[in-house]
Structures are given as C-alpha cells and as structure tokens.
Design a protein around this nucleic acid. Sequence first.
DNA 1: GATGAATGAGATTTCATTCAT
DNA 2: CATGAATGAAATCTCATTCAT
Lengths: 199, 199, 199, 199
Amino acid sequence: MGVTMDGTKQQRRGNTRQRIQDVALELFAEQGYEKTSLREIAEHLDVTKAALYYHFKTKEEIIVSLFEDLTKPIEELIEWGRKQPHTLETKHEIVRRYSRALVGAEPLFRFMQENQATVRELRIGDTFKDRMRDLRDIFIDPEAPLVEQVRCVSAVFTLHAGMFLMQDLESDFEKRRAAVLEVALDLITRAHEGARGGA
Amino acid sequence: MGVTMDGTKQQRRGNTRQRIQDVALELFAEQGYEKTSLREIAEHLDVTKAALYYHFKTKEEIIVSLFEDLTKPIEELIEWGRKQPHTLETKHEIVRRYSRALVGAEPLFRFMQENQATVRELRIGDTFKDRMRDLRDIFIDPEAPLVEQVRCVSAVFTLHAGMFLMQDLESDFEKRRAAVLEVALDLITRAHEGARGGA
Amino acid sequence: MGVTMDGTKQQRRGNTRQRIQDVALELFAEQGYEKTSLREIAEHLDVTKAALYYHFKTKEEIIVSLFEDLTKPIEELIEWGRKQPHTLETKHEIVRRYSRALVGAEPLFRFMQENQATVRELRIGDTFKDRMRDLRDIFIDPEAPLVEQVRCVSAVFTLHAGMFLMQDLESDFEKRRAAVLEVALDLITRAHEGARGGA
Amino acid sequence: MGVTMDGTKQQRRGNTRQRIQDVALELFAEQGYEKTSLREIAEHLDVTKAALYYHFKTKEEIIVSLFEDLTKPIEELIEWGRKQPHTLETKHEIVRRYSRALVGAEPLFRFMQENQATVRELRIGDTFKDRMRDLRDIFIDPEAPLVEQVRCVSAVFTLHAGMFLMQDLESDFEKRRAAVLEVALDLITRAHEGARGGA
DNA sequence: GATGAATGAGATTTCATTCAT
DNA sequence: CATGAATGAAATCTCATTCAT
C-alpha cells in the first residue's frame, strides 16, 4: 500500500511518514489534538521528536496531511455528485457511497467531530465546511423550505454519528451502518418530496 | 459596597464568581477548552489569575461548575419525562421542552459539542453520556428495532445541532428552532410508529 | 497550661493564638516548614488564613514564637548550669535535667532536627546554635582533647535523637529515655575523665 | 563553542547532566530542597529551566538520582558487612570503612541530615531508613539490651554528625574525622561487650 | 533519516500577604 | 476577632520547535 513503481508523491521504503500519521491520528482521535503531544507520538513510535520534524514541518501539518490524504475519496464523491442530475435516485446513491466512503476515514471523522473547536482554528476547518455545504447543496436546493434543508443536514449528521457515537446501540458495525443508512435515506427522501410539494 | 437598590444585573463586588463563569464559558465555547488559558480569562475580567483560584480550585472546576449549573433544567426535564406514560404525545412534549431548555444552555452545549474529546476526559463526560442515554430510553424501548433507535438519537442530534451548527441556513434563531423542532418531532413520530409495527 | 493569675503575657480567653501554635507545630514537625502552608493550618483550625494574620504578623513569627515559648526551660537550665561548678556530678545533673526538659519540647526539637536547612535561614537558627555551644562548653573545656569534645557533642545528639528517631528500637517512651540517658551519661563521664588524663 | 584547547576543567557538551547534579546538590545542601528552585539551578549553570527537564523528568528525580549515584559505595559496604562474621574486629572495620565512604557522599549526607522532613516524603526516604536499620543490625543483635542498641545508633549518628556538624570544633577535616572515628569505635566496642555480659 | 541537546514561551497552580468590612 | 476577596511573585512543569551532528 502506497508503493508504486513511478516515483509520484507516495512514500517509498522507510514508511515512517505513514507510521507517524497512523499513530498521530489514533492519538488525536482518542485524546484530542491539543492533549496529544509530539513527545507522546514519538514515544509510541520509538523515535525522537526531532524525527517527526524531518517528515512534517509542524504539528499542524500532520493533521492537515491526514485530512488531505483521507478525504480524497469524499471529495471525489462530491465532485461526481455535482455533475449528476439531482434526482432522488442520485441522492440516494450519493448517501450510500458517502456512507461507504466514511468507513475508510472513520478515525479522521471522529477526530473532526470531537475536536471541532480545534479544527476550526486549523487550515482545514474552512475546507471541511465548504465540503459539507457542497454536499448539502446536492441534496437540496438552497431555496427549498427550511425544514427540508434541516432534514438534509440531519441526514448527514446521522451518517457521521453512526460511525462513532452509536456504538452502545449495536456493536455490529455493519448492522449499525445499515440502520443509519436507512434513516439517512429516509430523511433525504422526505426532504426531496417536501421540497416539491413546498412549504 | 457593590450593592445597588434596584435589582438589575449589577455586578461589581460579589458576583465575581459568576462573571468568571460567564467569561470562561464564552471563551471555552469560542476557542476550545485547552486553548483558553486562565491568563486570558483573568485579563478579560481585569483580575489576576490568582483571583480565579480563589473562586475555583482548578481550571476543570470552572467548566464542571458551569455544567452543573446549566444542565439542571435539562436534568429536571429528563426526571419528569421518566415518570410520564410513554405516549407519543408525551414524547413530543419532551422534545418541545428539551428544545426550549437547550436555549438557556446553548453556549454550554456548543462547548460540549465542539470539545467532546476534552469533555470525555473531564468528570462531566460520563454524567452527560448517562443523561443522553436516559433521554433516548424515554423516547424508545431499548428492545425496539435498531432503525427506530437510530431515529431517536438522530432527533436528539438534530436538536443539538440546530442550536449552533445551522446558522448559515437561517439566521433568525426562532425560525431555525421551529424548523429543527419539526424535524425532530417527525423523527420521534416515525420511531414511535415503527416500534409498534414491529422488528 | 499557659494560664496564670497575673495578666503577664499569656493568652486569656479565646485561646486561638495557642491553638494556632499547636496545630502549626504539629504540621511543621510532620511535613516540614515549607511544605506546610498557612491555608493548611487555617483549615485544620476551621478559620480563615486572614485570622492567622491577626495573631501573627508572618509565617516565620509562628515558628519563632514557638521556639521562644518552648525553649525557655532549656535556656533556664543552661543559665543555671553555667553558674555551677563543673564537676562530673553537675554535668550528670544537667544531662538528666536536659533529658527531662526535652520531653516538653519534643515536637519542636523534632521539627528543628528535621528542618535544619530551614531553621538556619530563620532568625532562630543562630540562637539555637549558640545554645548548643553553651551547653557543650559546660560539659567540657574548649581546650580539652578533640576526642572528648566529640564525646560531648555525641552525648547531646544522642539525647536529641532519642526523642524521635529511635522509636523502632523500643516503643515505650520512658524505657527509651532511660536507655538514652544512660548512654549520654556514660559519654559525658568518659569525656570528663579523658579530659583530666590529658591531650 | 565552549571548547578550549587545554584540558582544564572545561565541560563542553555532554556532561550537562552531571553539572546539574553537582550544582543541585550544592544548592540543596546549602539552602534546602524546597528553597532551591529550578530557576536558581538553571541560572547557576547558565541554561534554561527546560534544559533541566531534558535531563530529569522532575525536580525529585534530581535528588533521587544523586542519592542513587552517591550511596552506592555505602550500599556495597553494608552488603559486604552482612556476610562477615559479626566479630568486634569486623564491626570496627565496617565503622572505619563507613567513615571513609561518608567522605565521598558528604554533601548528600549533609543534605539528608538537614532536610529529613523533605526526605521522608521523597521516594528515597524509606530506602535510607532501611539502610540504617541494616547497618545497625550488623552492629548489634536486635535482642541485645536496649542500652547497647542505643550505643550503636549513637555511633552511627556521631559518624554522620562528624561530617558536617562539628566544623567549629576543629577545622582540619582529617583530624576531626579521626576523633569522630575514635568515639564511634569506642561506642561500638562497649555495645559489643555490653551485649555479651547481658542486660 | 534521525538524534541529542537545548530553548522560549507559556501553562496551571500555590503561596504568603494585605485590607476593607 | 475574624472574614471574603484579591494580589504579586514565584514555583513546577510542558510544549512545539530548532539545529548541529
């Protein structure tokens, strides 16, 4: 994983860079960004703090790089969604794909959900907000009734929360995801229909 | 000294404790708990850091005291809810009251939403989680179908998010609250009915 | 104790001053002077820190006052000793009285033994050192052989240590005191005789 | 940078850890542990406080490390003593060696003597007490008459005190040590004989 | 690629002390 | 006699960051 024959952008042998990202994300998600020190990350990897600085210019760069690496599928999905006709079926397909895409980025999303105050100050904050707005705009016309817009936002939240906040409801990850997906699809459906009938 | 005849909000001597709480909550909600230093709070109030320590033994105690003071109405509501018959009408009433109760505790909830990683490490983390579970258990039987349980959690999230995360949807606070309320009520209704129809 | 019929210098009703001294000495002896804060003393007495300042101008004054109050018998003993002929019998009598006098000042001496570094910086440090020198000079001529002088110092140390450092040797206080006394008397005897026999 | 050509006393990079220990011990012994701040130590060394924390995790670790480094010869001596037959000659030999071993650890022992209250709270407190008990148990049977046990403890105290508390008796260190040694040996002899003759 | 050593800034916390009431 | 409120100074400690090797 991450190794290609051509030299483009990915880490070759000595995958320290990725190990740093992995450990950092785990700790960031578990304890929060500010409470996780570089010393801690370094200790988990059994290297020195200075080694981290060989791979990343700052602490912020670690989280930014994670964001950039892990949200690519989601970005692509949204890009794709924008070009489709905004039918109900398309919307459903996007919800389904979004749910699937979230699986790979789960720790990052948990991190972002639980450290919003921090994220807001980071460079990635705005990017993320824009992405969420794009997603919402695919689901519903900005001129649609407020209630239906809320339903769309609610659907997205539900998908996010289903990843990491409903673990006490059902421990089987796939069952949970299915239930969450159903609720989200339903919210989107109602928003879609409500927008046509119109407030 | 510091006493006025009219009862209006005066806050010279004597209410420093509350002024600390007010300023602290504002800053915690805005910048996050860890990024807000006691120096900053003290400067905003034009007192020394040591003065804060006269009123609160630790930084954590400030946020804990806020939690305890501000969540009392919500606790009482949940207590009340538990004793009612679990009819749809009761559930709706609880949702309506919960929405209203959240208004008073808005900055605290924004803080808790945006600093979950921090809150989790604080003493209040578990209390809050318990409260949320209690609320969910009022809305739906833990044995009900998973999908309906998700709907209930989704309703609660929607209420929370409506407080502080949908400000770009509609700037008028009361309009937003009404729309959010409607979506939440609808989710509860569907959960209620879905639970009767069966697994 | 501390109450006399004439009004001289001792505390009347409202014996807070003495209660402060008692608690302070106990804590100082147990934890050390620097590690014992005025807050702690105040809490033990169930008064505020400010109350302490009504009775003592500074923290140092508390310990100084204790020193002055409790070492009076010892000072008087030394004063008395100086005026006696320096026979062996006198020396023994002083040792015996000194051992008895130490009993009343035990916590103070424990404190001074265990906080010498602190005591040295306090006003009382020099006074105490002078007292010890006076005592030694009663026991032996400063021109006597060095070995005998060491024996005298050793005797005094033994008396001190017997008060609080040999508790694991024998738990019965009086038995311990008797044994310690015997060793000290013996050391003094040998010093006395060694001094006569010559350099 | 910091490098000299001649080998005199220069201490470039690399021995900071020991320089910290040296300066710290000096200051601890002179002013006491609590009264010596890390700022002060750092200033004496012309480094920042943070540099101290690179070498020692806490202030306590500094003193603990000193204790561990400097008491090693004494520990070895006691270990050796335990395995010898408990004859009078052995005991004398131990006293002599102990006196010599103390020379190297003089500032540490002065520190421990003068900061007992502090030491007691530190991790090293118990270790030290154990060591002293071991030493005493070599000198005399725990079942021997109390008076003789006191004599042994007295001998050890005398050795300690001779290091740093009798400087006004005789300024020549070696003369003082010889005198102290004689008194200690004598106390041990009497204890040994007293134990045979019985209570 | 990585380390060892260090720094500057700043965090939380504690303390003795003061003073108006 | 005593308190409530506050302060100024300083303490221990942590952190992200730097740089020569």
